[in-house]
Simulated assay, not measured.
Amino acid sequence: MAPGYEPVRDAFLANFATRAEIGAAVSVYRHGREMVRLWGGLADPDAGRPWREDTLQPVYSATKSAPAACAHLLVQRGQLDLAAPVAEYWPEFAAAGKRGVPVRWLLSHQAGLPVLDRPVPLADALAWAPVVAALAAQAPAWEPGTAHGYHALTYGWLVGEVVRRVSGRTVGTYFADEIGKPLGLDFWIGLPETEHHRVGRLVQQPVSETPPAELLTAYTDPASLTVRSMIATDPPLDLADPRTWTAEIPAVNGICTAAALARFYAALIGEVDGVRILDPASLAAATREQASGIDRVLLTPTRPALGFGLPVPGQPWWSPTAFGFPGHGGSLGYADPATGTAFAYVTNGLRVSLSADPRVTALVESLP
């Protein structure tokens, strides 16, 4: 740990002492150099397995920036045009009135495709092609481009299929070949079975919070757009199931260390050991706000960029120049080009809350 970052260590230890942390890791880069790498607690509290430096963790929606980076790398190389219709690369997508939907609306959650009319069998989602075919045939839930709404699960298949059609490789393979291997990242979309033994066990933790009535209704009504967006398969996806680790579900099943997630963000905003993912012009385009206001799915304010999330005031990582993505249960990866900071926190203690997680808040607020 670099001098001056002792408050991060103190906040990390306090999470275990006072905030019921189970197992976690945090990493911080500044201008391409790792300043902090900490890990601790239990990867599996039932078995007493300790969290180690190489413990891997599913990070849920913190995955979403990885397929976004793949798409923007294709744009940077002149292979993909975000203004072009999706159907130019994926002809079947033109069905159900979607012929004119541009690629950029897939990335900005404006395509109107956060749900499937009928959830697909879990095996279809794990196999990729059947769920992609279902999305190609699906009619939008709203007129594309007129609103934004979080594509919680469908985002990964939509963006991933465009990456596959353009590059000839699955998004997990493209990410590994073009980003993961050059940077030496312990970050996977489609985890090899040989690495399964390193994955921490997910533990659901209670949160004492009563959401506003209108949100409580939306988040508990099986017919709501909110609930349906989170359940695209039957049975629902369970990231404690090793079958979901091996498949490519690029909206949510990224599995990584905190060190790898932070290194990924550091390489988006600058060079890390001679490697940079996006040039400054590409990064600026990728992180430019595309919409703002109340999200049609989440029913809270959001600010989507092109595959990256932009923070709203009140979130611990708020900065007018920051971008990244939080993950269900508490994980977070983000970067702030203005300060040269890249940050990642991963945890196996899942807490679902509409307010900021006190564990990640304490860590972000401790940054020098």
Results as ranks from 00 to 15, higher is better:
Ala123Thr: 12
Ala125Val: 14
Ala125Arg: 04
Leu126Phe: 06
Trp128Lys: 02
Leu135His: 03
Ala136Thr: 07
Ala136Met: 06
Ala137Arg: 15
Ala139Gly: 13
Ala141Val: 11
Ala141Gln: 10
Ala141Asn: 06
Ala141Tyr: 04
Trp142Phe: 08
Trp142Ala: 02
Glu143Val: 10
Glu143Phe: 03
Gly145Pro: 00
Thr146Glu: 03
Ala147Thr: 01
His148Val: 05
His148Phe: 10
His148Leu: 04
Gly149Trp: 08
Leu153Met: 15
Thr154Glu: 03
Tyr155Met: 12
Gly156Trp: 09
Gly156Tyr: 13
Val159Trp: 06
Val159Phe: 13
Gly160Cys: 11
Gly160Asn: 09
Glu161Met: 09
Val162Ala: 14
Val166Gly: 09
Ser167Met: 11
Gly168Phe: 09
Arg169Ser: 14
Thr170Trp: 08
Ala176Ser: 12
Gly180Phe: 10
Lys181Met: 09
Lys181Arg: 15
Leu185Asn: 07
Phe187Ala: 05
Trp188Thr: 02
Ile189Glu: 01
Ile189Trp: 00
Ile189Thr: 01
Leu191Val: 01
Pro192Cys: 01
Pro192Lys: 07
Glu195Val: 00
Glu195Met: 06
Glu195Arg: 11
His196Met: 00
His196Lys: 00
His197Asp: 14
Arg201Gly: 00
Val203Phe: 09
Gln204Ala: 14
Gln204Asp: 13
Gln205Thr: 13
Pro206Phe: 04
Val207Lys: 00
Ser208Thr: 13
Ser208Arg: 08
Ser208Cys: 00
Ser208His: 10
Ser208Asn: 10
Pro211Phe: 04
Pro212Met: 01
Glu214Gly: 00
Leu216Lys: 13
Leu216Val: 08
Thr217Gly: 09
Thr217Tyr: 07
Thr217Lys: 14
Thr217Asp: 11
Ala218Lys: 06
Tyr219His: 05
Thr220Ser: 15
Asp221Cys: 12
Asp221Trp: 10
Pro222Ala: 07
Ala223His: 02
Ala223Phe: 02
Thr226Tyr: 07
Val227Thr: 10
Ser229Arg: 00
Met230His: 10
Ile231Tyr: 05
Ala232Arg: 05
